[in-house]
Design a protein around this nucleic acid. Structure first.
Length: 306
DNA sequence: CAACTCACCATGTTGTGCGT
DNA sequence: ACGCACAACATGGTGAGTTG
């Protein structure tokens, strides 16, 4: 027997809900069907993907690794299914796209690769800016569109956005960190821990949005623009942090492992979105780019580009 | 060569047991 | 009570073999 797309869908649903029964309900199948899929998948891969608990399941290290691949499989299949209806058309031109640092490093490359294959006649000029510079560029018309973290979008009157991806934020620790032995972890449990604060792309502002809902503040021992610095310091046990799954990688540059834990508090997701200036007629190339990006991440509301 | 039969397999459900 | 695992059984698709 070989891996099937059905097993991948069951696995992703289980990973995202944290419960086999919830995944089954979401997929409109029974819990047993999902259990069987995951067991078959584990047998096929030769690795345990979930740790089973009385209140659900959690991804193992191998499970987290496979989740990233499973999401790529799902996106690729979705892309293949949608593609032939729309993307065969010939469009030429240039599109200027602004992106933030996190998007450029962790979101854009695979998307751009697929776009280039679909629209070889379109040249994409990329510009990496801060959030406020992206907004100014959109309003001034110096860029056609942007892919950015939309939670902190300031000018929602002049700039329209379309949510593409919600990436959950979780606790990062070194392996064998005492916090990992706790059944449930809240922000209150982290307040006394040395905290590594990423500052790039307004990450600190985003972090403080969920800390503000508690009576605690993080014990920040180091602020940095470097995700790799945070990764290395977490991996060596210097501190903890909370960052999104999108930027998570299981190893630091030095080869030390980083563990993940879901928090019990309501920590906002990191929301990636497509943004463009309202009431602006997009060029054919810009419109093709926006439609391609929006269609690559279905799920939320349909959107019409002018 | 098309139509039919049958065995096999993947995938599903129901019912139930077990652990927390 | 809740959630996962497993056994037994049902269903539908597929491929091999048979028949006219």
């Amino acid at each position: 027997m070989s891996l099937t797309f059905r097993q991948v869908r069951h696995f992703i649903a289980t990973a995202e809900t944290g419960r086999v029964s919830a995944a089954a309900a979401a997929l409109s199948v029974t819990q047993s069907a999902v259990t069987a899929s995951i067991k078959a998948l584990e047998a096929e891969l030769g690795h345990k993907l979930f740790d089973r608990h009385s209140n659900g399941v959690t991804l193992t290290f191998d499970g987290r690794e496979f989740l990233q691949r499973a999401r790529a499989i799902e996106a690729s299949v979705s892309d293949a299914i949608r593609g032939p209806h729309r993307w065969g058309m010939q469009v030429d031109g240039t599109v200027d796209v602004a992106v933030s640092y996190t998007i450029a490093g962790y979101f854009l490359p695979p998307l751009l690769s697929r776009f280039w294959r679909s629209f070889p006649g379109i040249t994409v000029r990329l510009h990496e800016f801060s959030r406020d510079a992206i907004e100014q560029s959109l309003i001034s018309g110096s860029v056609d569109a942007a892919i950015m973290l939309v939670a902190n979008l300031h000018d929602r009157h002049s700039i329209r956005s379309r949510l593409l991806l919600r990436s959950p934020r979780r606790l990062w620790t070194c392996v064998n960190h005492p916090l990992l032995r706790k059944d449930s972890i809240k922000l209150a449990d982290l307040a006394s821990e040395p905290y590594l604060m990423l500052t790039v792309d307004e990450a600190e502002r985003s972090a403080m949005r969920y800390w503000q809902h508690t009576a605690y503040v993080p014990n920040v021992i180091f602020r940095t623009l470097s995700v790799e610095a945070v990764r290395s310091m977490v991996a060596t046990g210097m501190g903890i942090t909370i960052l999104s799954d999108m930027v998570y990688r299981p190893w630091s540059l030095e080869g030390h492992r980083i563990d993940l834990k879901t928090l019990d508090d309501d920590v906002h997701t990191m929301d990636v979105g497509l943004a463009w200036k309202d009431k602006t007629k997009l060029s054919p190339a810009a419109r093709a780019f926006c439609e391609f990006v929006a269609h690559s991440y279905p799920g939320s509301e349909p959107v019409q580009f002018e």
